[in-house]
Computed example of a mutant assay.
Amino acid sequence: MERIVLAYDGSPAAVSALSWTATRATRGPTSVDVVVDIPPWTKDRVPGTERFIDPEVVLRDRLPGLEVGLHRLDGEVTESIARAANNADLVVVGINPGHPIRAAATGWIPLGLSTLAAAPVCMIPVGWTEGNDPVTVGIADDYSSDAALRFAVAEATSMATGLRLVHSWLMPGPTFDTPAALTLRPEAVIDDHRHRLDAAVQLVREEVPTQLIQSELIRDSRSAALLRFVSRSSLLVMGTHRRGALIGSLLGSVAQEILWRAECPICVVPTERTRIASVGVSAASPVSVDSGE
């Protein structure tokens, strides 16, 4: 059974995250733990809150018999949600694309969760509606996208939709540390990156022969390459080095650059503890289509 932890504060973004969670729960045995960040008196004492959408009611109406647990926050928001997500398979939170200042005022909760939670964190943009576009996953130069690729394959399989693998590259600047640096050719760089992408595609084909796959090799930064597909994806999946929200802001975190321009759900999948490959995935660590991990 898949265990989902949903962060819920009653906002429009949280309602979108609730709707996404309910839709996902229809795919198989699921339990949902809702971590509520709403003062107990809000519904009864604040004018206009008659429009408050009760997450437990929505989930049980959509899926009678669904196992739902409600939990109040205990302490700092991000850390409380991360603790509640211990042993969870997925964490879900709503986001407001185009509002980074508003996010900063609330503690950058989605980015903070992606650095603290042990499970993949899916961030659902306000106004989300279900579609049938491919699941897009970024393939990194190192091992950081291994788990993300497996997660993306599982998602595309369960959604019965296509899978798009995106790998970007930029011509490295000359270092002149060795004579070899003087002979670096663009063709050799392109071939190396194409090999990384082709290796990931081949592994998916071996594991899931019926999966429809697109592959995109793009000369651009990772964030710019992925942003090309946010309006044409049901889900955008990426790995993470867990640099943290503050360090990521200084180093140009790919997730941070994409998040506030998202037009589709974004899922950040943590790197597994054991390094498993340097080309995206490896035959020693096969793609799993039986879980969302």
Rank of each mutant, 00 (worst) to 15 (best):
P270S: 06
D74F: 06
I4R: 02
E79D: 10
T30W: 06
L90T: 14
A147W: 01
A156F: 12
I81P: 01
G162P: 00
P97G: 07
S11G: 09
S285W: 14
F229I: 01
L113H: 04
V35K: 09
V137L: 02
V92M: 06
Y143Q: 03
S249P: 00
S249F: 13
P55C: 11
S11D: 04
S288F: 03
W41P: 02
G98S: 03
R150H: 13
M1E: 01
G252H: 07
L63Q: 01
D61K: 07
F176A: 14
E257W: 08
P55L: 12
P186G: 05
S282Y: 03
D142Q: 11
G28I: 13
S114Y: 04
G98Y: 00
D33H: 12
D220H: 10
G292K: 12
Q202K: 03
L70H: 09
L59R: 07
I53F: 10
R261A: 07
W108V: 00
R62F: 01
L212H: 14
R194W: 07
V269R: 05
T178W: 13
V68W: 03
T78Y: 05
S168R: 12
E76I: 10
A88Y: 13
L250I: 14
T175Y: 10
T115H: 10
W260P: 01
T271V: 00
S285D: 11
G252E: 05
S285I: 05
A84R: 13
I276H: 15
L59M: 10
I266S: 04
I53H: 09
A255H: 11
T161L: 00
G131D: 15
L235E: 08
A224Y: 05
T210A: 15
A160I: 05
L226V: 10
K43D: 02
I266L: 14
E187H: 04
V126N: 07
A105R: 12
A84S: 09
A13R: 10
D192V: 09
M171G: 12
L184N: 08
V5W: 03
G131Q: 13
T274C: 04
L217R: 08
P110G: 03
H193M: 05
L197F: 10
V36W: 11
N87Q: 14
V34D: 00
A7Y: 08
E293C: 08
K43Q: 08
F229W: 10
A154G: 11
A25E: 13
P55Y: 15
G48W: 15
I4G: 02
P55A: 14
T240Y: 02
V279P: 00
S158M: 13
A154S: 13
G127W: 06
A84Q: 11
R185T: 08
L226T: 13
C267I: 07
L203I: 12
G239L: 02
A284I: 04
